[in-house]
Design a protein around this nucleic acid. Structure first.
Lengths: 248, 248
DNA sequence: TTGCATCTGTGCGCTAGCGCACAGATGCAA
DNA sequence: TTGCATCTGTGCGCTAGCGCACAGATGCAA
């Protein structure tokens, strides 16, 4: 099993780890622990001291806030382009939001202490993580803008595209109910919007599975928010000053 | 004039500068330049290299995004508790959003080079700014949540309270039109909500001026978002590890 | 192979907020 | 002191999205 895993899995499947200079990655590698991240797993919640950070490879994590009345809203998503647990190095150690796995898969986790040792060298890892954090802030900002001004259908398109960008295939495994709770809208609203997209032959879906058929069709149907976020991630993480390119 | 200014103005009116250890502030102080920040001044815009960062003392700045169709939405606000220009030290040097002064006043500006010199010492200033950035992220997140789930009246209350927290008095100088464009809603919506608050004797207003009469009344009328943001700022900036207390 | 939990589809009444239009109030500039 | 730009108030029709209810489809577990 371990052999099989190491054949299939590699820390460089995570883009942040992939762009680190070799010497930094060599120092971290012995501490990186491949772990399954299962649908519904809570990676952290409010007022909880972070013990680890996670570099997802095939899993996707949602950062979201759950209100007193139980309603929720996603703030940002983290997949193979990022890291879960930024409040560790930002200094707050926790946030009012939750991090929950919404697409099961794998990731590499690293003990808080080991991350901070490398971060405190104030070298490439620190610079990379701060740039990543800024990109994440852009995603949060654009979520706020999009929630304010755009239709459920536009938001669904944006969300599908952002999720797709973190996946190797064009199929998402998730129910409409789950998408609705991520976006903070009614399930029926997603049923209707997804129906429109299916009739337009942009996606096809069956119980719990969505396949994107026409990516550029979705792009033309979404709002500008998707593009803003994508460009900002590219800008911030493709020229990291680490003399390595961000995988596209 | 300069004498009068220095009598009235002090870098420690900005809370971030106030909690810095004396030796750090002493190094920065000669480089801090008191500048007026006038209503409508654009502190930075997209794709512009930051030349300075700003520590507002009496001014308030809005970080907002303007859409292709001209509509806008505020992402977060920065007053005497913060700094404008975090993308400088985060490494991105710009953001897709704009920073515009919406309450005129003063602030201290610091050349990018001088800020980075101190930041790169990786001491108390760096730790403080990263914690502040995390608090700002919470504000952005909560803006997203609030935009999704809460009524215009609740949002207005939240916004008034957050703005009030950055001001010395209980009077805000701004038109309903300006508030509407900050929140990204119709001006008529603000007229209606403000009318309700006035009839409830929580505020009184006249053309361009809003006076808050009953702060706790506003607090009981707003959503949980205000409290989340306020507590998080307090938590992150009151225990900075700089052995000084954050002014309340 | 069937049963059943769960997912998706549809309909309906309701309302918050939008866009537009225009009247009246206000207060600064000349 | 007046004129006028600008701010605030109000009304109206419209619609996106909500909450609720329930029917039918699906696909996994036993």
């Amino acid at each position: 099993m371990a052999d099989k895993l190491s054949a299939q899995h590699n820390p460089k499947q995570n883009h942040l780890l992939a762009v680190l200079p070799e010497d930094v990655l060599m120092r971290l590698a012995p501490q990186l622990e491949l772990v399954p991240m299962r649908l519904g797993d809570v990676i952290y919640e409010y007022a909880e001291q972070l013990q680890h950070v996670y570099f997802p490879t095939t899993a996707i994590v949602s950062l979201h806030y759950v209100m007193e009345n139980g309603a929720s809203a996603e703030i940002a998503g983290v997949g193979n382009e990022g890291i879960v647990g930024i409040s560790l190095f930002m200094g707050g150690n926790t946030t009012p939001s939750l991090a929950t796995v919404y697409t099961g898969g794998f990731g590499y986790r690293l003990k808080a202490r080991h991350l901070m040792e490398e971060f405190n060298r104030t070298g490439p890892l620190m610079r990379l993580l701060l740039r990543y954090t800024q990109a994440l802030m852009t995603q949060m900002s654009q979520t706020a803008v999009c929630n304010r001004h755009h239709s459920v259908e536009q938001q669904l398109c944006r969300w599908l595209l952002l999720t797709l960008d973190k996946l190797p295939s064009n199929e998402l495994t998730m129910t409409q109910e789950l998408i609705a709770s991520m976006l903070g809208v009614r399930r029926e609203g997603i049923t209707e919007a997804a129906g429109n997209l299916q009739r337009a032959a942009l996606i096809s879906y069956r119980r719990g599975h969505i396949t994107v058929l026409d990516r550029s069709g979705l792009e033309s149907r979404t709002c500008e928010c998707y593009d803003v976020v994508k460009k900002e991630f590219y800008r911030l993480l493709s020229d990291t000053g680490t003399a390595k390119q961000f995988p596209n």
